[in-house]
Nucleic acid binder design. Structure first.
Lengths: 119, 119
DNA sequence: GTTAACAATGGACCATTGTCAATGGTTTTG
DNA sequence: CAAAACCATTGACAATGGTCCATTGTTAAC
């Protein structure tokens, strides 16, 4: 699939897709049938883009996501290293979610207090 | 309390504290007893800094946090407006956490799959 | 009372995460 | 085949969230 199609289906701008690719978050394969200079994306690219969105919402930076990709599908996977990396990131996200949860709770309490004021 | 004390107790750099203050996230009171040009922070500043951290982990930008502050403790609070603002932010954070959760789940699954490989 | 430590301000600088515009090549459509 | 639509590359620009530095003022310690 060409970038235009990917853009249409994902809602992400072509510039952003190319930006992600430059940074190793997504890959395009050279087309088997065509010999142009157009990027050719596999179907999985869509899921990958969705995954990037999720990672960002979880507080991952592009650099971190790129490291993740390298570790889990790069050549010569170092299992121990990958395992350690994953565990660390899992911990970080859990901590972040804890903090976010506390903030959310506070917002809700604030809203409730406000509502009580409103009558 | 002066900025140095706040910095010591919060672990946040003085530049960052002043940056936050410039952007309306925190306020210093003119000291009642002293007549210098030093910032004077109330005890609550510490909690405020902690709250800023939480908000950031929840994906809040500085601008959003500043708007929040204005709404809940600014002069002439518009209850309806504040209520709507809070609800919207609550929804956004919940959506973000949903995505983050999905990502976390995927990381855990990836780690489990990796572990299975390791023996 | 003078030095050391602390604080304020202004402005430059930095990384991150995109976005835009210009220019030129490729494909598709009519 | 000519025009419109699509794509690539390069490099500039922008917003966000700080950080650093130089200069100057203030306070505290010796």
């Amino acid at each position: 699939m060409r970038i235009g199609e990917l853009v249409k289906q994902s809602g992400i701008s072509p510039d952003t897709v190319r930006f992600y690719e430059r940074n190793g978050l997504i890959r395009s394969l050279p087309s088997a049938t065509e010999t142009n200079s157009y990027r050719n994306y596999p179907e999985e690219a869509l899921e990958r883009l969705a995954m990037i969105k999720q990672a960002q919402q979880a507080g991952f930076s592009i650099a971190e996501f790129s490291q993740l990709i390298e570790r889990i599908e790069g050549p010569s996977v170092d299992f121990f290293d990958a395992d350690q990396f994953l565990q660390q990131k899992i911990d970080e996200i859990q901590e972040r979610m804890k903090q976010a949860k506390a903030f959310l709770k506070m917002l809700k309490a604030t809203k409730a207090a406000l509502s009580a004021h409103m009558d």
